[in-house]
Design a protein around this nucleic acid. Structure first.
Lengths: 336, 336
DNA sequence: CTGTTAGCGCTTTCAG
DNA sequence: CTGAAAGCGCTAACAG
């Protein structure tokens, strides 16, 4: 392993026969260097494989170009990848790099992670969760610009970016309405999370916009798993006047609804249309027929969080912390 | 936002009425400090919310405790999460932190990522890919301890950790054998990747160990998607003497095989047993019946990579770079 | 046990 | 346009 000894700016200066200030200037693309000198210095730098040390530069300038990225958990869903990718892409584009810590829901790790990031003078911290809900962070977080991703502070004391669940629920329902459906079932999540309430609200908004009376018997609550979707579908379809279309809280529930419909010898989308939520592509793209669904804007939230951080890290935050909601794009496949 | 001004070690020393050396000693848990002094200094530090700057410490000690983590892509599979989680957990346990860059297969980004990591004096770099294959990295990588994760260098010039595909293929086949099956089909991947060849080798080893002649008509090659699995299953089942069990190259193909079997009115596992590979739990756990499959050791590879890096970063590498193969655990569900 | 001192490698005035 | 000098904040001898 050619662990070549890295030189210092002084050695470069000496070898090039110039002062260290000059070397520093060419390193930082200062205009105050004659083209000749620059060429020469650059040559020496290349020859010696010189590489300026970030630590020294940081000590001097206090700019690290590092953004701390903390997750509550990673890997129980395929969502983490897209969040990280969105954040990373945006960061890289702005010349920033991510320092990553996953806490596994451990409060001690969370506290320690923030502290080590503070010690390392990160320019800001992004705290990302894997599903939309309220969180409480240790107060030390207020010592640095921070943004919450896919979660929010109960007291709104921190900026946040989350999916626009209401709009998502409305859009999903509208798709079904546009296809002519008038009795639309909604298999909702039984858990008391924001998405449950907001998507229902969106569902009701869409119905109201079409002058369709809300029929409470058309919405049921089950566990957000295939079995829940299966059960929900069965109760909906055994209604005296069953729906012709079903909006499922998520793709896994849609997967269960597919099973139920198949057992009932009903075809999708002809007998009943199905729309999901989440766009877990390993499910949605591979179901038969492929599932039309709403995508959670994970990549976009990742991007938004770092861009917001970078933007508001320079000038002081004005007014109340921004609470952004990003739209959930419709992914059209063949189930409606 | 209480952006409190951080003090320096000098201010702490002054306020505590001691020298900076003493403050440094209590900061670093040196035994050469009287309990009284330590208490006192600690109190001042707490009072002022003092936080030592890592940059200064790094400049002085040249130890960053940072490990660079580079991915070729992230998010097309749910695998990235487990790899990152394994690496992160192991790193945190050792007091290290990960600096993350995703390259999106862009060679320029890769080169730049390695350079910036070198500038930042990372203690080593892990390069992770999302499926097992050979890679070629820019030569600059040799300037720092590096380990390849889920990939390897053609010339074996870098240490690497990959799944033990042969063993995985053999174990999967053995499970079927143990259940009494003697005609076992293998729907393999049509792509020319290591897993294709090695899993087939494992399949053949298992058969040979049971004195079963290899029947080439029992293995077919298709695209590693549900449609490929569907097709493969159909050709296998229309053989004059069809298999009673099928080993699928991956879970998505198994998903397609399930569809084919259902169309054929064959039940799983009674009429035919099915085993997958990958343990994509969103598929495997939710199929009906739940799919028995082999898990790719993503988490373990992540762990292995950082542990190896840390271990071999201290003492010089001895002999040829280690090429580790990690076992793929069997995940028993209900399809065999 | 503790204070003092000399840098780590870089940027940034300040002269010239 | 360029050199010299003064630190950024911390650790690690080195004397006491």
């Amino acid at each position: 392993m050619a662990q070549k000894v890295n030189s210092t700016i002084h050695e470069i200066a000496r070898h090039a026969g110039v002062g260290v200030g000059t070397v520093s200037r060419v390193l930082n693309d200062s205009p105050n260097v004659s083209p000749t000198t620059r060429e020469h210095v650059l040559k020496i730098i290349a020859e010696r494989g010189y590489r300026p040390k970030t630590a020294a530069k940081v000590l001097r300038t206090s700019k690290t170009h590092v953004i701390g990225f903390i997750t509550d958990e990673i890997a129980t869903t395929p969502f983490a990848g897209n969040i990280i990718r969105g954040a990373q892409d945006a960061a890289w584009e702005q010349g920033k790099i991510l320092l990553l810590v996953n806490t596994n829901f451990n409060a001690d790790i969370l506290q320690a992670a923030i502290e080590t990031m503070l010690d390392r003078q990160v320019e800001g911290i992004i705290y990302a969760t894997m599903y939309h809900h309220a969180v409480t962070l240790p107060s030390i977080i207020y010592e640095v610009p921070a943004v919450l991703l896919d979660c929010y502070a109960e007291d709104r004391s921190l900026p946040s970016v989350v999916p626009d669940e209401v709009l998502g629920g409305r859009t999903a329902t509208e798709q079904l309405l546009h296809k002519g459906h008038r009795r639309i079932g909604f298999i909702n999540d039984i858990d008391l999370i924001p998405a449950r309430f907001s998507r229902l609200e969106g569902y009701q908004q869409a119905l109201a916009a079409c002058q369709i009376d809300f029929d409470a018997s058309l919405v049921c609550y089950h566990s957000p798993q295939p079995t829940g979707g299966y059960q929900g579908c069965m109760v909906l379809m055994s209604l005296p006047n069953p729906p012709t279309a079903i909006f499922c809280f998520n793709d896994r529930m849609a997967m269960g609804a597919y099973d139920a419909l198949r057992e009932l010898h009903l075809t999708i989308p002809n007998d009943v249309a199905v729309i999901g939520f989440d766009n877990m592509d390993v499910i949605a793209a591979n179901l038969r027929p492929p599932l039309t669904t709403m995508e959670l804007p994970h990549y976009a939230m990742g991007q938004w969080a770092v861009n917001y951080l970078i933007e508001h890290t320079a000038r002081p935050a004005t007014g109340a912390p921004r609470q952004a909601k990003l739209a959930c794009p419709l992914i059209e496949r063949a189930s409606i």
